[in-house]
Design a protein around this nucleic acid. Structure first.
Lengths: 137, 137
DNA sequence: GCAACATAAATGCGCGCGCATGAGATGTCA
DNA sequence: TGACATCTCATGCGCGCGCATTTATGTTGC
């Protein structure tokens, strides 16, 4: 049953190790992301992708201007282009983010975080850190 | 900005460490699960949850009988009860799994893997291992 | 200048997920 | 026994996701 391969000895052991690493990743991911999702939603009205986008926006934008090109921000995230676009729409409707036209390329948009977005992110980040500390600390 | 807490010194460093562990989990999870999803779907017509259910079914059932109570199998998986139920329905329609009534509690169902399910799982497991080896090996 | 191709973002679509609820079977207790 | 809680599983519903396509621009080669 076990061992489809041709190299005997520590082959099976290393394969088991790979399995263990993956199943621990799965376990950790589901436990933490489920709790993050619930806590962020209940406490701050944010989904995990919403939070991650705000986090990346705070991290990537110039400290003075607070603005990034959407495509650059998208590259920082684990989301498809369409999911990213809709997350931006969601956050814009909530007033946490603003699209701004780019002067030299009218296909592109800048993205800026609003004051409300900044405040919401900062309070959500405390919840976020608390959950992470609980699981990893 | 950093450090909302009360213990100075290595506080900030440990918090960063927690962040890094979580973001690495996120990165690994997305990279591996996306590739697993694509490879399993393209090569064997199975989603990741389908595969994980077959895997748990092979692992949990008695070696001779090949059958488990649905609720027991559900407890082994990172799926809600409804998602689990629908995954079973999907796999049953595909002919990889069979529901069987439980004699002494008519609420319950046994779940059994079929020969076709076993074959499909075994070939998919090779793809699965290859992807895992590529990322972790 | 213009046709062909490339890029940024939005949108139509189907799918799998979780939550809430429903349907049916079983357990409990007066 | 009858009323009611509990358990197992299925289903209605809305949501966020990725894929494919569309729309609007830019860019390149002739």
């Amino acid at each position: 049953m076990h061992g489809h391969g041709n190299v005997p000895g520590m082959d099976a052991a290393s394969e088991v190790g790979v399995d263990v690493r993956w199943s621990e990743t799965l376990r950790t991911y589901h436990a933490v992301s489920n709790e993050l999702e619930h806590e962020l939603q209940a406490g701050h009205g944010l989904g995990l992708s919403d939070f991650e986008l705000l986090k990346a926006l705070c991290r990537c934008c110039a400290p003075d201007k607070g603005t990034v090109l959407m495509k650059d921000l998208e590259a920082e995230m684990y989301l498809s282009q369409s999911a990213f676009s809709r997350t931006v729409t969601r956050l814009e409707k909530a007033g946490f983010v603003e699209r701004a036209a780019c002067g030299f390329d009218r296909r592109s948009n800048f993205l800026a975080i609003t004051d409300a977005g900044s405040e919401r992110y900062l309070s959500a980040a405390e919840t976020h850190r608390a959950v992470l500390d609980k699981h990893f600390g």
